[in-house]
Amino acid sequence: KVTYHVPNEEFARKLYKKAVDANLNVEIRVENGQFIIHIE
């Protein structure tokens, strides 16, 4: 399980798409202006 803290929405979207394309379980949320992405 990996967690990324991404300040940039564009990068967060790319990361999310890559994980989904790889059939990984992804959860994304915004906290204090940062995008928190959990990948399992």
Rank of each mutant, 00 (worst) to 15 (best):
T3W: 09
I39W: 02
L24Y: 07
K1R: 11
A12E: 03
H38G: 03
I36V: 09
Q34G: 11
H38A: 13
P7H: 13
A12K: 02
G33N: 04
V2A: 05
D21R: 12
K17A: 11
V20T: 07
E9Y: 10
K17Y: 06
D21A: 10
V2T: 07
H5N: 09
P7F: 15
T3F: 07
V20H: 06
E9S: 03
N25M: 12
N23M: 11
N32P: 01
E9W: 13
L24R: 02
F35N: 00
V30L: 06
V26T: 01
T3S: 10
D21W: 07
K18L: 14
N8G: 07
A22D: 05
I39H: 01
H5C: 15
V2N: 06
E31S: 07
L15R: 01
V6R: 02
I36S: 04
N23S: 07
L15G: 01
A12L: 13
D21L: 11
I39F: 05
K17M: 06
R13S: 03
I36T: 05
Y4K: 07
H5Y: 14
E27S: 13
N23W: 15
A19G: 03
N8V: 06
E10S: 06
G33D: 03
A22Q: 07
R13Y: 08
D21N: 06
F11N: 05
K14Y: 13
I37C: 01
E40V: 12
A19P: 01
V20N: 02
P7E: 14
V6K: 05
H38W: 12
Q34L: 12
R13P: 02
A12R: 04
F35S: 01
V26D: 00
Y16W: 06
V2H: 14
Y4F: 11
P7Y: 15
N8H: 04
K17I: 11
E31D: 05
A19M: 13
I37D: 00
K17H: 05
N25I: 13
E9M: 06
E10H: 05
E27C: 12
I36K: 02
K1Y: 13
E31P: 01
V2D: 08
G33A: 02
H5M: 13
I28Y: 03
Y4S: 04
E27H: 10
K18Q: 13
G33Y: 07
Q34I: 15
V20L: 13
F11E: 15
V30N: 04
